[in-house]
Amino acid sequence: MEKVISLIQYFSQTSDFEKILHPYILKLHRVAFRLCGSVSDAEDLVQDVLVKVYPKRQTLASLENPGPWLVKVLYRTFIDQRRRMSRSPLHLLLNSHDEENNPVLDSLPCSNRGPEEISENNQVREKLMRAINSLNLDQKHLCILHDVEGYTLNELEEILNTPIGTLKSRLHRARASLRKILQHETF
C-alpha cells in the first residue's frame, strides 16, 4: 500500500500548528505574566515555549485539551530559566531590588472607572500582589496557577508534577498566609 505524503499535509500541519496554538497564546501569556511579572519577560517566555513545542506539534494535535500540557511546558521552561539565571550573580543582585519596585504593580492597566474607585482598586490589588509575593515560591506559583488562573488541583498535579496531596496542603498553607496578611482588607 502506498501512502501519499503530499505537500498538502505539510500545509495542513503548518496551519494546524497555528490553528491549535492560536487560542492558547493569550492564556499562556497571562500565566507567563503572572509568573514573570513583566509583559516583555512573559512574551519571551511564551516565545521560548512555542519554539519548544513546534517539533512536538503532532503530540499537541493528538491532545484533547492541550491547555494544561502547554502550561506544563511553560512552567518547566520558566523554572529552568530561573534556575539558570539564579546562577548568574548579576541577576541575584537585581533580584534583591524586586521588593521595592515590583514590575507587576507598575504594569497593571487602568480601567474605565472613576479615579477614587481606581485608586481603591489599585490599593487592594497592590496588597493582594504583595501578599502573593510574600509566599514562598512553591506556594506563590501554586496560588497563581490555582487561585488566580483557576487551574484545578487535578490539572496542577500534572502541570507541576507534584502529588495532589502535597499540592492541597501547600495550597491550604498559602491560603492561611494570605488570610493572615489580608485580614484587615476589604475586597
Binding site: I25, R34, V46, L50, L108, D147, G150
Partner: peptide, 20 residues
Amino acid sequence: QALRALPVPAPSPGFISHSL
C-alpha cells in the same frame, strides 16, 4: 474573587501571529 480578578496587561500588538 479578588485574586481571580487581578488584571493582566495584553501582550504587544501582533505578538500572537508573530510568535507563532
